[in-house]
Amino acid sequence: GALALRRWCRGQAARLLPPYLLQLAAGADFCLSGVSVRDQRGRWGSCSRGGGKAAAPPREVGGLRGLLDRLTGRKGQNGGDDAGHADARAVTGRISLNWRALLLPLPLLEHLCWHELCHLRQMNHSPAFRAELARFSPHWQDMEKALSRSWRELPWWALPVSAPDAP
């Protein structure tokens, strides 16, 4: 029951979340060398700099991107003017998303992705990071609070367990 549901969700997350994140990144000139989906015990995602060549953006993203576009009436997003960020765009990095992010409402998932992408440019939670995040997620303060609540409101079967289950 619960183990099968966790495995299914992890598989769906591995299939849907990387192309969704790569699509956002490409639309706002962020360089990613890779995206992984993991079973992180206490965080929604993580970011590390480096990692080599940037990953190619997906040509077509259905799934979450298509659903988000239909819900919001958008045809993609460029995140605004990137003037003054030419050097920052050249920084590549890897982002890991927690498979449980698949369970988030789409606006929170989008915010989580912007949060991790902005860490490619600012590897901290400084005022500069918050200013960068505000460019892509204008209501970031409310979204951060909602992400914290969402972790506490995960269904019982999605809660982290002491022994990791098989991928």
Rank of each mutant, 00 (worst) to 15 (best):
W44S: 05
D142A: 14
G27T: 06
A128D: 14
L102T: 07
L120R: 05
Q12D: 08
S126V: 13
G51Y: 03
W140P: 07
T72E: 15
K75I: 03
R121L: 08
L117V: 06
G42C: 12
W157K: 13
C9A: 15
L102I: 14
R130F: 11
G66M: 10
Q141P: 12
A26H: 03
P160N: 14
A26K: 00
W114N: 13
G34T: 00
H115S: 15
I95E: 04
E110Q: 15
G11L: 00
L24A: 05
N124Q: 05
A56E: 11
E144K: 08
T92H: 00
G84Y: 00
H139D: 15
T92C: 06
G80S: 06
C47Y: 02
R6G: 08
F30G: 04
R41F: 04
L108C: 04
R130H: 13
A158N: 08
R152G: 11
P127W: 04
S33V: 03
T72S: 15
G76D: 01
W8D: 09
R7A: 14
A26I: 04
D82Y: 02
L5Q: 14
R38D: 10
A134Q: 15
G63S: 11
L103W: 10
A25Y: 02
R6W: 03
S46N: 11
P164I: 08
R49N: 09
G1P: 06
L117I: 03
G52A: 04
